[in-house]
Design a protein around this nucleic acid. Structure first.
Lengths: 220, 220
DNA sequence: ACCTAGAATGAATGAATGTTCATTCTTCAT
DNA sequence: ATGAAGAATGAACATTCATTCATTCTAGGT
C-alpha cells in the first residue's frame, strides 16, 4: 500500500476542473475501501464520516452509497478486505511449497507478520479499531473468526510438521500455535500503542525467542 | 465489579417517583464511569452517547457535564480508571511480599490476568475499544503507556529474580517479560474476538506453557 | 424553622451526519 | 452522430447528538 496523495483520483484537464470519470464498480469499491483505511488510521474508527472518506477518495458521497449501500456496509467490507488480505498472506506462506525448508518457512512467516507490509500504522490501526468494536458487534466477530480459523489450522499443521521433523518431545503443536498467534497479536498491539517502548526490531527478536525456545534446531 | 441493574441509583418513594439526591462528587464520577464502561461493552465505543450513559447511570445529562466537563473528558477518565485498575492489580501482586515464593507469585499473576475479574467481556471490550482509538489519539496512547511502563518494569524485576533463583541460563529477563506481556494481551484479544475458538481454560494453559518453558523449576 | 450554596435537572439549541434522489454527465452500441 | 443505460454528483432533508443554562431541589448550618 503506497502512500497516495489525498485526492488520488482527481483528474484535471484545466487548473481547477475535475473531469467526471466513469470506472468499473470493482475499482470504485477498492478506491473507497482504501480511503476508508486511511481515514480510520488517521482519525480513528469512531470519527470517520462518509464525507471524510469520499473526500479522501476524491469522490462524492453519492458514489459511496451507490457502490456500498450504507456506511455500515462500507465499514464491514473494509474490515473484510483487511482481514482477508492479512490472512491470505499468512496462509500463502504457511502452505507454500515454494519454501521447502521448514525453518526458513517459519522465518518467512515471522517476517511477514512483523515486517513492513503489516506493521504499518495504517494497517494496525484498522486492525484494532475493529477488534475494539468486535465485542459489541457480532458481525465483526464473525468476519474475523471465519478468516482466523483457517489460518490457525494451517499454523497448527506447520508446527506439527516441525515437531515431527525435529523430534521435539513434550510439545503440543496446537497449544503452541495458539500461543504464537496470541504473541504476534500482542506485539502488534504494543507496536501500535506503545511504539516508544517497543521497536519493530525488538518485537521481532521477542517472537524469534519464542520460536527458538520451542524449536531450537529450526531457528538459528 | 458486580453486575448492577441498569438504573442502579434510582430512589423511589412512590411507584414511579424518583427523588432527586445529592451525593459527593467522587461518588457521582464513579457512578458515571461505571455506566460508561457498561455502555462501551454493550454498544461499542463509537456508538456511546451521553444520553445512553446518563440513562444507564440513572442520572441526567446535565449531571454528566457537571462532573466531567465534556464527553471527551468522560471517555478519557474512563480509560484512565480501567487502565489504572488493571495495572495496580498486577503491580500489587508482582511486588507483593505477601507471597514470598516466586513460583506462587507467578501463579497469582497469571490467575489475575486471566481470571474472572479481568477477563469479563465488559473489561476486555473497554480495553480494546480504547486500544483501537489509540492509533489516532495521542492522549489515549499516553495514558496507557504511562501506566504500562511501570508494570513492565516490575515484571522485568520479578522475572530477573526468578532467573537468579533458578539459575536459568540463556534467558533475558527483559525480553521474556515483553514476550509474556504481549502473550497475555493477545490472549485477551482472542477471548474477546473469538471466544468460540479460545476458552479461558485454554488461554490459561497456553500462558502457563510459556512460563513453564522459560522457568521449568518454578511452574508445576 | 429558615436560609443558602451548590448539586441536579432536562428542554432548548445549533452543529454535524447519514441518506436520498433529481439532475448531469460519460460511454458505447447502433 | 445519436440515444439509451446507468455511473456520478451534491444540495436538501431528517435525524441525532453534545452542550448549555435557567430553573428546581436538597442538605447542612444557624
Amino acid at each position: 500500500m503506497t502512500d497516495v496523495p489525498s485526492a488520488a483520483a482527481e483528474v484535471s484537464t484545466d487548473a481547477n476542473t475535475k473531469r467526471r470519470q466513469i470506472r468499473p464498480k470493482a475499482e470504485r469499491r477498492r478506491q473507497l475501501i482504501d480511503a476508508t483505511i486511511r481515514c480510520i488510521a488517521r482519525h480513528g474508527l469512531s470519527s470517520v464520516t462518509m464525507q471524510m472518506v469520499t473526500r479522501e477518495a476524491g469522490l462524492s458521497v453519492g458514489t459511496a452509497n451507490l457502490h456500498f449501500e450504507s456506511k455500515d456496509n462500507l465499514l464491514r467490507e473494509t474490515l473484510r478486505f483487511v482481514a482477508e488480505e492479512y490472512h491470505h498472506g499468512q496462509i500463502k506462506i504457511m502452505e507454500g511449497s515454494d519454501i521447502p525448508d521448514l525453518g526458513k518457512r517459519l522465518d518467512a512467516l515471522l517476517d511477514f507478520q512483523l515486517g513492513r507490509g503489516v506493521t504499518q500504522r495504517q494497517k494496525m490501526s484498522v486492525w484494532f479499531a475493529y477488534y475494539g468494536e468486535a465485542g459489541a458487534r457480532p458481525v465483526y466477530q464473525k468476519i474475523v473468526s471465519t478468516v482466523d480459523r483457517l489460518a490457525a489450522q494451517k499454523l497448527e499443521v506447520l508446527f506439527a510438521s516441525i515437531v515431527l521433523e525435529g523430534g521435539y518431545s513434550g510439545v503440543n503443536a496446537r497449544e503452541l500455535a495458539t500461543g504464537y498467534s496470541a504473541l504476534i497479536d500482542g506485539l502488534h498491539l504494543g507496536l501500535l500503542v506503545t511504539p516508544r517502548e517497543l521497536s519493530k526490531r525488538r518485537a521481532r527478536s521477542v517472537a524469534r525467542d519464542f520460536l527458538r525456545r520451542a524449536f531450537p534446531q529450526h531457528i538459528s
